[in-house]
Computed example of a mutant assay.
Amino acid sequence: MAPIAASPMPLLAWSCAQVALAAAGTCLARRYALRRRLLDHPGERRSHRVATPRGGGVAIVACLLVTALALSWWYPGERMLLLAGGAGLLLVAAVGWIDDHRALSAGLRLAMHAVAGLLLGAAVLHAGHGPLLAASGVLATLVLVNVWNFMDGIDGLAASQGAIAAIGYGVLASAGPEGGAAVVLAFSLGAACLGFLPFNFPRAAIFLGDVGSGALGLALAWLLVLLAPRLEQGPAHWALLLLPLSAFLVDAALTLGTRMLRREAWWRPHVQHAYQCWARRIGRHPPVTLAYAAWSGAAVLTMLATRGLDARYIIAAAAAWCLAGGWAWAILRAGASPPGKEQAHE
C-alpha cells in the first residue's frame, strides 16, 4: 500500500477521518468524565467559573497513536522514530491521565517526561542523525510538554495553537522534495485538534486535561525532530521551526522567568501569564484565543515565506518576531488587573 502522503486526496481523506475520530472520542471522554465526576472546579488559580469535565485530550492521543502505527508500516525507513515518538506519547499521556484522576508529584511527572524525551533522542541516534539533534529532541520534549501544560488555561487556546503549528509544519514538509511521515503526522495532529475544538471553544464543554496538553507538547517535539533534518539550513532551521510556537514560548518563558526572579514557586498553578491577565481584564476568553491564533497564523506565514532565505535573514526575522512578542507580553501584563480582582470564565 502506497504512503498516503504521496497524493493530496488520500491525505485529505485521512485527515477528515482523524477529525471524525477525535470528535467521537471527545464525546466519549466527556461522558466518562461526567460519570466519574472528573471535573476542574473554579478557584483562585483557575480562569473559569463553572465546573467543567477534563480529559478530552485522550481523543487526540488515540488519533496520533493510530497514525503512528500506520506510518510505521508505510515508512519503514522512519519506523524507529515513529515508534519511539508513539511510545513517548503514550507515556506522557498515561502520566497525564493518571494526574487528571489523582494528583501526582511534579518530580514524578517531570521524570516521565524526561524518559519520553530520551526515547525520542535514542531513536534519533539510531536513525543516524547527530547527537545535537538527539539532544535537541530531548530538550524540545521537556520544554514543549510543560509549556503546553502551563499555557492550557482558557477556552480553545492550547488546542488551537497546536492545530495552527501542526498544519503549518505539514505545509512546510509538503513543500520539500520528500515530506515523508512528517507530512501525515503533522496534518493528523492538526485534524485531531480541529475535531476536539468544537467541544472546547468558544465555551468549553470539556478541557484537554493533562493527558491532552502534555500529549500536544510531545507531538510537536516529535514533529520538530522529524522536520529538522529535511530543512538543510544548519542552526537556522531551529529558528524557522520555532516561529509557529512563539506565542506560547514567549509568554511561558517571560512569565516563568519573572516568577523565578520574584522567588515564587514557578511550577505551581497561577494566573499570571499574559493570556490569563488579558482574559481576566476583558472577562472573556474567545477574543484572547483568536488573537493568539492570529499571531501564530502570521508566524506560520513568516516561516513559510522565509524558508528559502539566507540563514542570517531567517535568524534575524525570528529574533525580531520574538522581540515583538515580548513587547506585546509586557503591554498585556502591565495593563491587567491583579489576580483575584476579576475572574474570566470558561
Results as ranks from 00 to 15, higher is better:
residue 138 V to N: 12
residue 335 G to W: 07
residue 211 V to G: 13
residue 44 E to S: 15
residue 102 R to G: 00
residue 232 E to F: 09
residue 138 V to I: 15
residue 246 S to Y: 11
residue 160 S to K: 04
residue 110 L to A: 15
residue 7 S to L: 12
residue 243 L to M: 15
residue 91 L to T: 13
residue 164 I to V: 13
residue 123 A to D: 04
residue 18 Q to A: 14
residue 338 P to S: 11
residue 239 A to L: 04
residue 315 I to G: 02
residue 146 N to W: 09
residue 24 A to W: 07
residue 339 P to R: 08
residue 112 M to P: 01
residue 89 L to D: 07
residue 82 L to R: 06
residue 242 L to A: 14
residue 71 L to A: 14
residue 312 R to Y: 10
residue 327 W to V: 15
residue 319 A to R: 09
residue 123 A to R: 06
residue 248 F to L: 14
residue 309 L to Q: 14
residue 75 Y to W: 15
residue 319 A to N: 03
residue 50 V to C: 12
residue 160 S to L: 14
residue 209 G to N: 03
residue 43 G to S: 04
residue 287 P to S: 03
residue 332 L to I: 04
residue 14 W to L: 02
residue 73 W to N: 07
residue 115 V to H: 08
residue 263 R to N: 10
residue 226 L to S: 00
residue 256 L to F: 01
residue 57 G to N: 05
residue 212 G to W: 05
residue 265 A to N: 12
residue 17 A to T: 04
residue 26 T to E: 00
residue 173 A to N: 09
residue 49 R to N: 02
residue 191 A to T: 00
residue 39 L to A: 11
residue 112 M to F: 15
residue 92 V to H: 01
residue 179 G to E: 01
residue 146 N to Q: 11
residue 106 A to T: 10
residue 261 L to R: 14
residue 100 D to A: 11
residue 206 I to K: 04
residue 279 A to C: 05
residue 142 L to S: 07
residue 337 S to R: 14
residue 284 R to N: 01
residue 113 H to S: 01
residue 21 L to Q: 08
residue 318 A to Q: 07
residue 1 M to H: 14
residue 342 E to G: 05
residue 238 W to D: 09
residue 213 S to D: 10
